[in-house]
Amino acid sequence: MNSLKPLYPTHQPRKLKVATVSLAGCFGCHMSFLDIDERLLELIEHIEFDRSPLTDIKQIGHCDLGLIEGGLCNSENVVVLKEFRAHCKTLVAVGACAINGGLPAQRNHLDLAQMLHDVYQSRPGMTVGSVIPNDPELPLPLNKVHPIHEVVHVDYFLPGCPPSADAFWQFLTDLMAGRTPHLGHGLMHYD
């Protein structure tokens, strides 16, 4: 008896590889992403995570989609952002910080050296002899906070502080279906 074998091997559609990262972010965009709740189980049928705060992968591989939360506030942010751009076909600025620097960019009218001095050296309650951390292990802060589109090309912006879970869902389902993401009234907000 011949066993019934399919003529061709069957394949599931390849899952989209998605990387995520928080630069000068607060992780709030990631939390809002997780707010899609049980829809995560549906999502995971269609995507697999590469480098992300949710996985243990240290180096980003080739990805279909990169979600960037947070603006750029230090040198490491810039290196990571460029790695993401080099490895992701589609790169998305997620949240107010990635889009226009966000509330962290309110430091842009202050003098960086003065701020570091105020926080690490002269703040009340500091141990005598406290200095500004100067180990080369630590990334140097940038003079100003910048949105990510000022350093790399960005394919899509997903606004909000954070974008709502429904906005994430709309955006991702549109993208996975090959549609240009569209956020209507109620999903489009900057606050």
Binding site: N100, N108, P147, E150, V154, H182, H189, Y190, D191
Partner: peptide, 18 residues
């Protein structure tokens, strides 16, 4: 802000002046 929502402004496109 509301007009920017209405015109589907997702991102700033230009460099920030700050």
């Amino acid at each position: 802000q509301a007009t920017a929502y209405q015109m589907h402004m997702e991102g700033p496109h230009f460099e920030e002046f700050y």
